[in-house]
């Protein structure tokens, strides 16, 4: 499929230093280009009702639970499901999809990662997300956006390059750097032992042995934008020990926060082998006989662990 690209990239200097600046746009760019032909603005939030309280004029909503997850199997929608969703939303295969959301784009990054599973070529994040747009006093509306339906093709999902399954993580323990992007109490394991409130959902607390703790939010500045590249390099290269050629797997609780880190490592720092282990702690912490480390140290991989 060859299409004439008419939607320009954002050449704002604040983005230029990142490895793939074409994956980000500024709020100012969005204000200028949101009504351009071929641009579809998508809001993706943790809270399913936030869009209804007011959204960027012309934006549509995609919900991570109801739209992107399969409602029966714990998996993402398949090619037919994705085609049906995007067709109903009015997105074409050659659309420039510009995603923004709440919480420093944590869920927007998750949506972008799912779009990437289907190889949607032009998908971008709004640096700073919903909060920055609002802080700048830009317009919100409650008007319904109704786009003409499209005929998005059925594309087989390609998980291998950017998604890791538990079996792979287990089999390759110690061979690849693991980044745990959850909060420190979740990493150490104390979060499942809160008095009176057993955490439903996960039976064991701690982290995957050898995983280094880098909470996802360290990549975000106070205004929800991504930190400058030099600061990100300090965090992920100098502190966490990654390199641009590292083969990294990131995980969190269900794979949302680690999508944010996946975006940072892949598109802002230019690592070409980053996978998101979306099963994450809600899978690992419930699995019988997998190794678990507790406390602040990455921990030791038991000799027998990699032999299943």
């Amino acid at each position: 499929m060859s299409v004439l690209k008419t939607v320009p990239f954002d050449s704002d200097p604040s983005l230029a230093a990142y490895a793939h600046p074409q994956r980000l746009v500024t709020t100012e760019w969005l204000a200028q280009h949101k009504d351009d032909a071929g641009v579809i603005v998508v809001e993706s939030d943790e809270d399913v009702l936030l869009y209804e309280t007011g959204h960027i004029p012309g934006a549509i909503k995609i919900d991570w639970v109801l739209d992107l997850n399969d409602q029966v199997t714990r998996d993402y929608v398949d090619g037919a499901g994705f085609a049906k969703l995007l067709s109903a939303k009015g997105i074409s295969r050659d659309s420039t999809v510009v995603i923004y959301g709440d919480k420093s784009n944590w869920w927007a990054a998750y949506a972008l990662w799912v779009f990437t599973l289907f190889g949607h070529e032009d998908v971008r994040l709004v640096n700073g997300g919903r909060a920055k747009w609002i802080d700048e006093g830009r317009e919100l509306t409650r008007d319904t956006t109704k786009l003409a339906t499209t005929n998005y093709p059925v594309i087989e999902r390609n998980d291998i390059p950017i998604r890791a399954y538990q079996a792979t993580v287990l089999k390759t323990l110690g061979q690849h750097p693991l980044i745990d992007v959850r909060s420190t109490p979740e990493y150490t394991g104390e979060r499942t032992h809160m008095a009176e409130y057993p955490q439903e959902g996960v039976l064991r607390g701690g982290h995957i042995p050898s995983a280094v703790s880098v909470p996802w939010s360290r990549a975000a500045a106070a205004d929800g934008t991504f930190k400058p590249r030099t600061e990100l390099e300090k965090i992920y290269f100098d502190e966490a020990g990654l390199a641009v050629d590292s083969d990294v797997i990131a995980y969190c609780r269900i794979g949302e926060r680690s999508s944010h880190t996946w975006f940072v490592l892949t598109h802002l720092l230019g690592l070409s082998n980053v996978r998101n282990y979306d099963g994450s702690w809600t899978e690992w912490g419930n699995t019988v006989r997998v190794p678990v480390a507790q406390g602040l140290e990455p921990g030791v991989i038991p000799a027998a662990a990699a032999k299943s």
Binding site: D47, V48, L49, L50, E52, T53, D102
Partner: peptide, 9 residues
């Protein structure tokens, strides 16, 4: 918080 309309609902 106002940013959590489902919870508020």
């Amino acid at each position: 918080p106002l940013e959590s309309p489902t919870t508020r609902g």
